[in-house]
Every structure is written in structure tokens, then in C-alpha cells.
Design a protein around this nucleic acid. Sequence first.
DNA 1: CGCCAATAAATTGTGTACTATTTAATTGTG
DNA 2: CACAATTAAATAGTACACAATTTATTGGCG
Lengths: 149, 149
Amino acid sequence: MMAEDKMKLENQICFSLYATTREMTKLYRPLLADLDITYPQYLVLLALWDSSPLSVKELGGRLYLDSGTLTPMLKRMEKVGLIERYRSREDERKVLIGLTKEGRDAEQKAACIPDLLLENIDMNEEQILQLQHTLQRMLEGAREKGEGL
Amino acid sequence: MMAEDKMKLENQICFSLYATTREMTKLYRPLLADLDITYPQYLVLLALWDSSPLSVKELGGRLYLDSGTLTPMLKRMEKVGLIERYRSREDERKVLIGLTKEGRDAEQKAACIPDLLLENIDMNEEQILQLQHTLQRMLEGAREKGEGL
DNA sequence: CGCCAATAAATTGTGTACTATTTAATTGTG
DNA sequence: CACAATTAAATAGTACACAATTTATTGGCG
């Protein structure tokens, strides 16, 4: 690639990531409107449906988010009754996040979302798996490089 | 893939996008610290270095952002002297965004950023181009599907 | 036991994103 | 020409995201 092209917006791999992520997130919005949650909140529920309760720390480890982002988001989710927050007995520093009945019930309502979303992507399973693999490699690489910052 | 796996966080293609985008953005931070700008502000400058002035609308078209996001960001960039904002003479509805001398000079300082960033990615050119192509197809698809929302 | 470094959340402050609404300028049509 | 529909930005309000700091708890270790 020629030198000047490296400064073109459309050749920036990270701009493609940035723009695509936001556009894909918009596709989730109508699917999540039913549950009255945002996309990051949906990710929190996915993590909790897989395993709960989780401490804020553990949740942050899975979502790559810190308490500065999670604490206010979790308080909002608690207020609408999807989750509950309580201190761990064994270690009072930890705040555990558990699902309420409403939060557990939401899993059934959300079960169709992955398929509905895939309908909006004009890619076959092989292409998606390939993309997934590339992104995960990139993610791990970025986390290694970014460690000491 | 089995049905229950579709609800696993780590199998969500959009979660990979979301997490990777944020981690890659973090890699830019030290590179942009010199210029004292954020990653979205860097994208604005890339667009303007390619072509300026641009109206808020045109800029939004390139970055996939609307005035609700751009207006406050551009005002911050104006305040630190990177850009200037002024109404178009031909169409007073349009606010044109131009580069100041400082904004133009920043291009030289930023010229090394694409290469420095690529050093942090353990992928060859072919893999990057392939990823770029996949993401652009996904982006266009998402924009079509999301049009009427 | 007492103290101190380490850990977990919460808090503070700044900067995006996005929806919905408002304001102002322009265009198209009768 | 009048005037409604359209267009461009700005504004208002909510919700992330993240760096930096603060507060509370815990686990050593002398």
C-alpha cells in the first residue's frame, strides 16, 4: 500500500471495526426493545445466564469492562428488577451480581435474538467463524500489547 | 453450532467486534497522547486531512456519526485550536469544518501512527486486507438492514 | 496482635454515542 | 409570491466508556 493511503480513513482497519461495531449494535436495538435493555446490558445478561452470581470483577473480566462502567449500569439494571446486587459473605469487598426471577425469565424471551440477528448478516457460517477467529486473535494481541498502560 | 451455544458470550460475533474495537482503541491512546486528541477526534482529522472543509453532514456521512455526537466534539476541537467552524455562504444551514494551521501541521506528527499501530497487530498484510474486506461487507449490509429504523 | 500492601467497588470527571426534539434556512409547488 | 415540506445543526436527555482517585476490606508478615 502506498504511504499516503495509510492515512486514508477507509483504509484504517480500526475505523472499519469502529464503524461496523456501532452499526451492528444498532441492529440489536429493535431486538432488545422488547426486553427494554441496551446492548451492553444484554451482554451482562448473557454472562449471567451462563454463570451467576458473578462478582463485578469477574463480570468485568468477561466483558472487558471496569467498575467505572459497570457500577452505574448494574445499578440501572437493579432498579428495573433484572438483577440483584449484594455483598459476598466470604469477602465483603466483593459485590455479587445475581439474576432475579425476571432476569432469569428474560433468557427465554431472548433465545431468538442470535438467530434474528444472523438473518441480518449476509454471511455464511464459515465466514462468520473465520471472522470470529481473526477478531479473537486480534483481541488477545491487543490485550497483551496494552497490558502495561 | 448447538442451540445453547448461541447464547454464550464468547460465540457472539458482535461481542468480539465490540471488545476488539475497544481494545484496539486503547492501543491508539498512547500514540494520540502527543497530539492530545481522542480516537474519534483522530478520525475527524483523518477525514479533514483527506478533504476539507467538510460540512458537519458530510463529516457525519464519512464517520457514520450524526450532529448529536459531532457538534460537541467539534466544539471541543475548535476550542483547542485544531479546527475552525463557520457557516457556509451559499447555504447558511451548513456549518463547514476546516483545518487551522495547527490542525494541518498535526498531519506530519500523525504520519507514523498507522505504522506504529500495525506493529502492535500480529497479522500480515493479507490477513488485514481480508479482515478489512469482511468488515466492510458487514458494515454495508448492516446499513442496508438498519435503514428504516 | 498491629500494621501495611494489595484488592474490590464506588466515585469523579471527561468524552463519546444516540434518540428525539427544536430552530433556522432553503426548496418546491401552487 | 406565499407557504408547507425538507434539510442542516444544535440541543436535551440517557447511557456507556475510561482514567484517576477514594473508601473499605482482606491477607500477609514481623
